[in-house]
Computed example of a mutant assay.
Amino acid sequence: MRDDKVNDPERTVELLWRRDGAEARRGLSLGRIVRAGIELADAEGLAGLSMRKVAERLGFTTMSLYRHVSGREQLIDLMRDAVTGESPGTVDADVDATGRDGWRARLEACARQGWELRRRHPWLSEIRGGRHVPGPNVIAHYEQMLGVVAETGLPPSEVIAVAGLVGRFVDSEALLLVEAAEAERHSGLSEEEWWGSRDTLFEQLNGYPVIARLWEEGGYDRPEDPFEFGLARLLDGIELLVKKRYETSDETGVCVVCGTPVEQPSSGRPRAYCSPSCRQRAYRRRKSDAT
């Protein structure tokens, strides 16, 4: 209750959807505060972000910031929406490399957009918890991903679950980069340098045959890229789920191609498609998958 009063979610919504463009040419403005916050977080992460530091960066007192933004958490919401607007608004990939229907290629493109955005602004992955108010840019990107997943014909609850799963994967991988960079700042050693100094640990590993064999066979010398490997396996799993929905006539009550409600017969086999065109589309997809 107290946090909500301090940060005032309704006021955050109002600030995020401002369309009046009223920014002072000189002096302090909301836009300048948000940009300074972004610059500070890019340099120091969210741990280094404070209202005091933002004020110092702008040459104003901390109290003067509170006339524009209620506090740090509200500022983070504004910063997140501002940087999310940097990415392209649409995903252009229509088909994947095999020429199949392009939902997988477009979903992959959405994930890569989020990944590149977090590489530019690593602090995005540090925003935790479910009570950060999304702005128009954040919602537009979420809408885009939902639209891509909805094309698979999965039922609505699974569309939302898949979009959330992909988003959490991108965040978790990006957070590993943040943690590695933070450890390097504190220790002065890169990941390779730190592990390269663990000879006494490596001497103990000969007693673990699987680890020793993988080490000797070069498994640790040429590791898979975690993001690339993980994204590919995640998309494989989603594709398997989609195929399962096409191959089985479940009783979700919606078309397995477009998600439109399907009127079911009182008896006999449940209908999986809302129209002949959707049935044809499913047939073409299965034929394409078979080749």
Rank of each mutant, 00 (worst) to 15 (best):
L205W: 04
L205M: 13
L205G: 03
N206R: 14
G207V: 07
Y208D: 13
Y208C: 11
P209G: 07
V210Y: 13
V210G: 08
V210D: 08
V210F: 13
I211P: 06
I211W: 10
I211E: 04
A212K: 15
A212C: 10
A212I: 09
R213G: 08
R213N: 10
L214E: 12
L214M: 14
L214A: 09
W215H: 15
W215G: 10
W215E: 14
E216P: 01
E216A: 15
E217V: 05
G218A: 00
G219Q: 07
G219Y: 11
G219N: 07
Y220N: 11
D221E: 10
D221A: 14
D221V: 01
D221Q: 14
R222T: 01
R222F: 05
E224A: 15
E224H: 12
E224G: 02
D225S: 15
D225Y: 14
P226M: 11
P226I: 10
F227N: 06
F227I: 05
F227P: 03
E228L: 15
F229M: 11
F229R: 14
G230C: 05
L231K: 01
L231N: 03
L231Q: 00
A232M: 12
A232K: 13
R233D: 09
R233G: 04
R233F: 04
L234T: 05
L234Y: 02
L234K: 02
L235D: 02
D236K: 03
G237R: 06
G237E: 03
I238H: 02
L241P: 00
L241G: 04
V242R: 04
V242K: 02
V242N: 01
V242W: 04
K243S: 03
K243F: 02
K243Y: 00
K244N: 15
R245H: 14
R245T: 11
R245P: 02
R245M: 03
Y246W: 12
Y246T: 01
Y246K: 02
Y246G: 06
Y246M: 06
E247Y: 06
E247S: 14
T248A: 04
D250I: 05
D250F: 08
T252Q: 08
T252K: 05
G253R: 10
G253K: 12
G253V: 15
G253D: 11
G253P: 05
V254A: 05
V254L: 08
V254N: 04
C255V: 00
C255T: 00
C255L: 00
V256E: 01
V256L: 09
V257S: 02
V257A: 08
V257M: 14
V257C: 13
V257R: 04
C258W: 02
G259T: 01
G259W: 01
G259A: 05
G259R: 02
G259P: 00
G259M: 04
T260P: 01
T260K: 15
T260R: 09
P261Q: 08
P261H: 11
P261V: 12
V262I: 08
E263M: 10
Q264K: 09
P265D: 07
P265W: 03
P265L: 09
P265H: 09
S266K: 12
S266I: 07
